[in-house]
């Protein structure tokens, strides 16, 4: 318990809400930060994307139009500080996925600026996109694991991509799998794991390169409530080590329970940005569509 108290003292105001989350002490790892090597260790060639000071995620008047004048985002400005835990909520078609895909530059803004870790993604050269993605951990509703690779190999791939030696991969993969609660299941293929376990593998993969920003798009969308709770606890613990966590979801129960900052999108616009619960019906906000 002492550790959790320390966390609370160290946390800034946006993290105070952690006191409301019931995390049984035994599920908190001895030290999640154990996978984070001392800063300055082995900066690799080409590892060009390092988040600077200032907001972790910043949208400035972002408009994204798809073909046929379909609006993904319609003038979104928002700022997410380093270390925050933020929910992005809204019905399907509200622009959540567009928001997420803009952050990892799967999409480019039609106008406005998407700034991640101080870097304007509109000015990021295509050849540098892989380095952006290494700095961001991504978790998706459909897990996006490589189907013919075991849990260990899936996590290892993310390490190999960043050029880690085999010894280092062999050392860190079991470590991170244990951390997400998959001790001893490293040799299983994704299809041999439950949905919750697969999502834990994908979180392990997202974490293994120590990203400063973790983005999850409907991470609990395919999971039952109990399993969802486990995944959310895991994301909370990750957030507690200082990683910024952005979760897009329409899971009202989860959001209500967690009482974090909630950014609500409706038809491509932010209709609410406050701490608290889901507060779903955008009609209440007086939004003019």
């Amino acid at each position: 318990m002492a550790r959790i108290d320390d966390d609370i003292h160290d946390a800034d105001s946006t993290q105070r809400a952690f006191t409301l989350v019931e995390v049984p002490p035994e599920t908190v790892p001895a030290d999640l930060a154990v996978v984070t090597p001392p800063s300055g260790e082995k900066r690799r060639r080409g590892d060009v994307f390092r988040p600077g000071p200032g907001p972790m995620v910043q949208f400035q008047g972002v408009i994204k139009r798809y073909d046929g004048d379909v609006r993904g985002l319609d003038g979104v400005s928002v700022s997410i500080a380093a270390g925050e835990f933020v929910f992005l909520v809204g019905q399907s078609g509200s622009g959540k996925s567009t928001f997420i895909r803009l952050c990892i530059r799967e999409l480019r803004a039609t106008s406005g600026h998407v700034i991640i870790g101080g870097r304007d993604l509109g000015e990021l050269r295509r050849s540098k996109v892989p380095y952006l993605r290494r700095a961001i951990g991504c978790v998706f509703q459909d897990f996006r694991l490589l189907p013919d690779r075991t849990a260990s190999e899936n996590v290892a791939y993310a390490l190999q991509v960043t050029g880690h030696s085999r010894q280092e991969v062999n050392r860190r993969v079991p470590e991170i799998l244990a951390l997400v609660g998959l001790d001893g299941k490293g040799d299983r293929l994704p299809r041999e794991l439950s949905g919750g376990e697969q999502q834990r593998v994908s979180i392990a993969r997202a974490l293994v390169n120590q990203p400063r920003l973790l983005i999850a798009d409907e991470p609990t969308g395919n999971l039952d409530p109990d399993t969802s709770q486990g995944i959310m606890d895991l994301l909370t613990r990750i957030n507690r080590t200082g990683t910024t966590v952005l979760v897009a979801t329409h899971d009202r129960d989860t959001v209500d329970r967690m009482q974090q900052r909630v950014i609500a999108l409706h038809k491509g616009r932010i209709v609410r940005d406050a701490e608290g619960g889901y507060n779903e019906d955008p009609g209440d906000t007086g939004e003019i569509a």
């Binding site: 991504c138 490589l146 991509v161």
Partner: peptide, 16 residues
């Protein structure tokens, strides 16, 4: 195709 997509997602460079 999906596999290549996933590889790109975790930050694999094109040559990788």
């Amino acid at each position: 195709r999906r596999e290549v997509e996933v590889m790109r997602l975790v930050g694999a460079t094109n040559w990788f």
